[in-house]
Design a protein around this nucleic acid. Structure first.
Lengths: 165, 165
DNA sequence: GGCTAATCCTTGAGTACTCAACTGTTGAGG
DNA sequence: CCTCAACAGTTGAGTACTCAAGGATTAGCC
């Protein structure tokens, strides 16, 4: 074990290796760049931007903490803290509906909408320049199809696991 | 601003939206699942696994901290801490070459190779089941091509930025 | 040869999460 | 009703990074 590369690990080579390894690398590079853009131009992290966008897309501009967590792929604890920071910045407010006192609504404020509108432009341009630009329409469509299949498989696996509990 | 969804943000819709949004979601879901697998079966985080793999692939089973950082897409600081924990677990050792005392080599140990070998099987199976399985060969090839283009564009942009400094 | 700049790594401080334990609230069954 | 389970959110502790500052070592240059 003191000479050359360790043997017996050469599996998952092209084209598999490229498809998977590239996927990881591109995700890291592109999301980092997009996050940096948003921070520099709007003082918003990528997560904060995404949360604002989900809220803006929701009816009434508000969602339960729970729902927001699902849409942002975060745990409830993470959302509590994310929303707390957005509230501190005045971009979101918390609402406690009197008819169901165990839920909390996060609602985007006017200031939040203003910030989101300009951040959205930046972000969209970034996604196009860094990602979309390199996909022709047919590839984009095929990609969407692949992601859909993977998510479907993943969610049926998850519910199988939940059932086994 | 109290009725319905916020207007004027409807851009980036299908098929663009699916290709990008799905990309993010799939990355989050799949890497989380793979990380959980590795932790449960081998007590290794995904980052730790990747670092061990890069070391195993390197000549002599060792890399400078610096090189390891690049290959793992981490900052030097992150690698210092990651290697420290691998050293604590006996999977890696630090070597201080006498002829260049500012560099540090991280070298995978025999124990590290053993753990890596079994973790590698788990990981490979996970990647295939959760990702590869949903790609036919032609799509995989096309994906690899797309990732290559994106990384190329990103790296020329980076070097442009570095030049402008 | 000795100053300077560049390189390599580490460290302290901060950020952004996760998980598990907890509190408070509601709904459903006897 | 009253209890008990399920649900919604928060919190404390821990993890895994980042960034920027700093110390040590080496290389370039006159």
């Amino acid at each position: 074990m003191s000479g050359d590369p360790v043997k017996g690990l050469e599996q998952l080579r092209p084209p598999e290796g490229d498809a998977w390894g590239g996927f990881l690398a591109v995700h890291a590079l592109v999301t980092r760049a997009l996050d940096a853009d948003l921070r520099a131009r709007h003082g918003l992290s990528l997560s904060a931007y995404e949360a604002l966008l989900k809220l803006a897309w929701a009816p009434g501009g508000s969602l339960r903490m729970n729902e927001l967590a699902q849409k942002c792929l975060l745990t409830p604890g993470g959302v509590t803290r994310l929303v707390a920071s957005l509230v501190a910045d005045g971009l979101v407010e918390r609402e406690l509906p009197p008819d169901n006192r165990r839920v909390v609504l996060a609602k985007i404020t006017d200031a939040g909408v203003r910030v989101l509108r300009s951040a959205h432009k930046t972000h969209l341009a970034g996604v196009r320049a860094r990602f979309m630009q390199h996909l022709d329409d047919e590839t984009a469509e095929r990609l969407g199809e692949v992601w859909r299949r993977i998510r479907e498989a993943q969610s049926t696996e998850d519910s199988a696991k939940r059932r086994a509990r």
